[in-house]
């Protein structure tokens, strides 16, 4: 199962930098990033190559952070690529809580990261439909 780190951050200058600085010091690479904002604070979501290490480093530094299971679905980087997956989710009555995507190889492959309620069960459904779901190591080796 791919892992995502959720970090509580106050919305003020320097807070994101505090995270990137710490990751840099620990030689951790960021694969994907997304930020949810509530004006005075937000939740930073990152996918990194060494999630457990990053989690320990951040916690030791006093950050409130949590490791979460996500689905990293490999999809075609072409018109309709994402549409096929969203249709699949609808057909199976799966609700997406949060999602973001990034391209691996332009016009060939992209990865959709989704947060769902029961990732383990849904992983089985998506796999059955012929999609490749990236495991931790595969995601970071890209």
């Amino acid at each position: 199962m791919a892992k995502q780190l959720n970090i509580f951050l106050e919305n003020k200058p320097g807070r994101l930098k505090a995270v990137t600085e710490l990751l840099y010091q620990n030689k951790i690479n960021i694969r994907a990033l997304s930020l949810q904002d509530r004006q005075d604070f937000g939740v930073l979501k990152i996918v990194v190559d060494k999630p457990e290490e990053a989690h320990i480093a951040l916690t030791q530094k006093g950050f409130a952070c949590a490791l979460k299971d996500i689905l990293a679905i490999l999809m075609d980087d072409k018109p309709g690529g994402l549409h096929k997956i969203t249709s699949l989710f609808v057909d199976n009555k799966i609700n997406i809580q949060d999602a973001y995507a990034f391209v691996i190889e332009s016009k060939k492959q992209a990865v959709l990261c989704v947060e769902v309620k029961d990732p383990k069960a849904i992983k089985v459904i998506i796999k059955k439909e012929g999609y490749k779901i990236l495991e931790d190591e595969q995601l970071y080796e890209l």
């Binding site: 959720n6 509580f8 509530r38 604070f41 979501k45 916690t59 409130a64 952070c65 949590a66 979460k68």
Partner: peptide, 15 residues
């Protein structure tokens, strides 16, 4: 202050 050990990472829960 948010208490680290009980932080779930969910924005909804923070709200």
């Amino acid at each position: 202050e948010i208490y680290s050990k009980l932080f779930t990472g969910e924005l909804k829960e923070l709200d």
